[in-house]
């Protein structure tokens, strides 16, 4: 029998790897994929806790997270295309017009 904490640990590991991707990579595409990884780690925790507690709310929240992830990917990639057309780069360190 798997302990509930094993699922939470796996969820934390997936989230942590996503954080590493966001803070270390310079490629905007890979940063967006790392954000998807983080959202997926959260989903693992929602589903596992929901099923261990016998509450359908866990599944509903995971469903909402997936909806937000899909919307975020669509808008993020549209922004990326607009930026690439403008700057011809996908290097996040070169996108700093808001920095002073």
């Amino acid at each position: 029998m798997i302990e509930p904490s094993a699922y939470l640990l796996l969820s934390a590991i997936l989230f942590g790897i996503g954080v590493v991707g966001v803070v270390t990579r310079k490629n905007v595409l890979i940063i967006l994929m790392s954000v998807e990884l983080m959202l997926n780690g959260v989903n693992v925790a929602f589903v596992a806790v929901g099923s261990f507690l016998g509450d359908a709310a866990g599944g509903v929240f995971a469903f909402m997270v997936m909806t937000v992830a899909a919307a975020e990917a669509a808008v993020g990639l549209a922004l990326l295309i607009a930026l690439y057309r403008l700057k011809e780069t996908i290097d996040i360190t070169e996108l700093k017009v808001l920095k002073w």
Partner: peptide
């Protein structure tokens, strides 16, 4: 996570 105790048992039919 180790300190967080939860009733553990077979997966409930909530999914």
């Amino acid at each position: 996570a180790r300190r967080f105790s939860m009733p553990k048992g077979p997966a409930a039919e909530v999914g």
